[in-house]
């Protein structure tokens, strides 16, 4: 048990990061369009429950994943309608939905608690899995994990290399200018809110059908949504850097198991909350890295500049301030 194998460790990181990665990517899209969907934690729970219940009843994993994604998009739609069309505080609506979606998940999922159900099996990719080291780390997983890997590149390409991606970024920066260019900022934002919610729903399904199969109270996915929200900031609203953050976090989680074996006197609870103070420190550091005096200090110090660049990220200018029409 105390054996330490880097290949298995990294393989575990890639597999374990899948749900949080999907959620982080989804939220990155939403926030890039200028809307904060704070309801992530509840959405993940609700979609995880939906995925398990649907997959259990229909015996179809695909139906489970699809329904979870739809539920994710539905919750996001509530956030979108309230913030974009009714001009209510995004934080308030998101927070209410966080609690409500979680309670809804517990309530509706109650009859399915601790029922053995379907789960996604591993699907090694032929040939690629035989590559030494890399094969074990990247190509010996289940389909949702491959999907999460693929999406990193795909979303980056969409955001930074396509005209649609340019519009997505512009609506988050300046919806007014979008409007002047003949793009309807409201519907565009709504589309990406739904899109982000869709991926968050997939994250929930990945939890209950793949990473931690099954449903119960607590399910084990509690808190993930908040971490994903923090990772979006950590990633500076950039999909690839957000993905790096998700992998770092998963690495910490997996290391927690080893730490527990190495330091048996320290209770498990300490390792479980370790990511949260780390998240705070990172946020402090990001703020620190953007201070002018620090940037000046870094002039001429190459390694420091690299570190600072790693921690800097510009927030979409119009984040949290939806476009108001008729003005």
């Amino acid at each position: 048990m105390t054996g330490f194998d880097l290949t298995i460790l990294l393989g575990g990181v890639v597999a374990g990061a899948a749900p949080i990665l999907l959620a982080t990517l989804g939220e990155t899209i939403t926030e890039k369009a200028g809307i904060i969907n704070l309801s992530l934690d509840g959405t993940i729970m609700l979609s995880a429950m939906t995925a398990f219940v649907v997959a259990f009843n229909t015996e179809s994993l695909i139906a489970g994943f699809v329904s979870a994604a739809v539920v994710g998009a539905l919750v996001a739609a509530v956030v979108g309608i309230f913030s974009i069309y009714l001009e209510q505080s995004q934080v308030a609506v998101g927070f209410v939905l966080t609690l409500m979606a979680r309670d809804l998940a517990y309530f509706l999922g109650n009859p399915y608690t601790r029922v053995p159900g379907p789960s996604v099996g591993p699907q090694p990719i032929p040939f690629l899995k035989d590559i030494p080291f890399l094969g074990e780390v990247f190509f010996n997983h289940s389909l949702p994990v491959y999907l999460s890997l693929l999406l990193i590149g795909l979303i980056w390409w969409y955001m930074y290399r396509t005209p649609q991606g340019l519009r997505l970024r512009s609506v988050g920066e300046n919806p007014g200018a979008c409007f002047a260019r003949g793009i309807n900022p409201r519907s565009l934002q709504m589309i990406y809110v739904l899109c982000g919610g869709f991926f968050v729903g997939l994250a929930g399904a990945t939890f209950s059908l793949c990473t931690k199969p099954g449903w119960g109270r607590p399910q084990g996915a509690e808190g993930t949504g908040w971490i994903a929200l923090a990772l979006v900031i950590f990633g500076g609203w950039h999909p690839i850097r957000a993905a790096i953050g998700a992998y770092l976090f998963a690495f910490l989680q997996v290391m927690g198991i080893y730490f527990q074996e190495w330091f048996p006197s320290v209770p498990a609870q300490v390792f479980q909350v370790a990511p949260f103070p780390l998240m705070i420190f990172t946020l402090v550091f990001i703020n620190f890295a953007q201070k002018e005096s620090v940037i000046k200090h870094a002039e001429g110090r190459v390694w420091l500049k690299v570190v600072l660049r790693l921690f800097s990220g510009a927030m979409p200018t119009a984040l949290g301030k939806p476009h108001k029409t008729g003005q």
């Binding site: 009714l86 209510q88 609506v93 209410v96 609690l99 309670d103 309530f107």
Partner: peptide, 17 residues
């Protein structure tokens, strides 16, 4: 499940908003 109370409370706030 007793979490029904949370569902009602959340729905109230959303509806009021």
């Amino acid at each position: 499940d007793s979490s029904l109370s949370g569902v009602i409370q959340g729905a109230l706030v959303l509806a009021a908003l």
